[in-house]
Amino acid sequence: MGKKYDVTDHVRVPEHKVLSSEEKEELLERFNVKEQQLPKIYHNDPVVKELDASVGDVLKIERNSPTAGKAVYYRLIVERK
């Protein structure tokens, strides 16, 4: 017991990457949306805790999709109320 496991290694957890502020601007421009219109992820999500990210950052998530092969998704980190 007391073994450690890495949340990000799990098969059901896709790769999460933090976008730089330039990348974030570009993304919002490309989809013509405001930050608040993006899907959210809480700051205390187990995966976010593993990453070096803070509230307001956008995560790029590369999902393995059964139909498209790979699908890219974005989530904005928000504080849990």
Partner: peptide, 14 residues
């Protein structure tokens, strides 16, 4: 439970 342990993306997959 998956959400709690592995986060929202794993929860979606589940």
């Amino acid at each position: 439970e998956m959400e709690k342990v592995f986060g929202i993306e794993a929860c979606r997959n589940t």
